[in-house]
């Protein structure tokens, strides 16, 4: 009898495993699908795309599309540099200062702490579209358009990231290490930089990916604020390609989209190491 149940359990385990793999593989195909379509379309001519927007088989127009792309004020290098400056800058600021703010919210006991936390959560809820009007107005009136800093510095106040970091700290921050560091005579700022940041690595990696992706793909704000060609980001350049509504070169648009997404994928793969392995908090303690 006992053997039977073990066998059944094993069988059940195998069935479950098969189910897991089937679901995972299906989801994986769904994930790759749009990238495949995009990259295939980057090799197809505009006419081919207009005739059949979705195809799984590459064609031979990659070179042609690249020529159209670069002939149309699409400068991948300039776009890449601007996008990198904005995305790396805003991601780093957002991550560092959000963690610092969250640390202040969790580790210290101060009078306005709860009020401040509530304010941060409330800011997060304000619908973005309308507030943008005031932001553009401010930038144009103060002559701050075409200034990359206007797309980088606001990241210091990223309520959603602070919220996440705070929740993460609340769940798993080992307060003992703060105590022992204080006993060793470490300053508060040093404790944050040398103890807290390393512990937060899995959280930092995930939030860095999200911040980087959203900053890299951000289109509307840069589009309104960066009107000077030398400040264009990659998505702005793709948007310009699409702007030629009477003669839209779909092949080169898809190539532009592909070029835009490639650095993101590289960045993601680098950071995803931390998602996969993770550095459990406990490991630092020992």
């Amino acid at each position: 009898m006992k053997v039977d149940t073990i066998d059944q359990k094993k069988k059940g385990g195998i069935v479950l495993k098969v189910v897991i793999y089937i679901i995972c593989i299906l989801l994986a195909i769904l994930s790759i699908f749009p990238f495949w379509i995009m990259m295939v379309n980057a090799t197809r001519s505009t006419t081919e795309i207009q005739q059949h927007a979705v195809s799984l088989i590459p064609s031979g127009f990659l070179k042609n599309n690249f020529a159209v792309l670069t002939g149309k004020s699409f400068n991948p290098l300039v776009g890449f540099m601007n996008s990198i400056i904005i995305s790396v800058g805003s991601t780093t600021l957002s991550i560092y200062f959000s963690t610092l703010t969250a640390y202040a919210l969790v580790v210290y006991d101060w009078k306005l702490r709860n009020a401040f936390f509530k304010m941060i959560v409330a800011i997060m809820m304000i619908p973005a579209q309308i507030t943008m009007i005031g932001f553009y107005q401010m930038c144009y009136k103060l002559g701050l358009t075409n200034n990359l800093l206007m797309l980088i510095l606001p990241a210091i106040a990223s309520p959603m990231t602070v919220f996440f970091m705070r929740q993460y700290l609340v769940a798993a921050f080992p307060f003992e290490i703060v105590q022992s560091a204080r006993i060793d005579g470490a300053g508060e700022f040093r404790i944050f930089n040398q103890m807290c940041l390393p512990i937060m690595k899995p959280a930092i990696a995930t939030q860095a990916i999200f911040a980087f992706v959203s900053s890299w793909n951000n289109l509307f704000t840069p589009l309104v604020l960066l009107t000077d060609k030398k400040n264009y980001t990659m998505p702005i350049m793709v948007s310009l390609l699409r702007g030629d509504i009477y003669k839209t070169e779909y092949g080169s648009i898809y190539l532009g989209l592909t070029l835009t997404v490639l650095p993101l994928i590289v960045m993601y793969l680098i950071l995803s190491r931390y998602i996969i392995e993770g550095v459990a908090m406990g490991s630092v303690k020992g």
Partner: peptide, 11 residues
């Protein structure tokens, strides 16, 4: 894990 997040990367 890496693949499942990918749809979020594309615009």
């Amino acid at each position: 894990k890496i693949l499942f997040y990918m749809p979020n990367i594309i615009t």
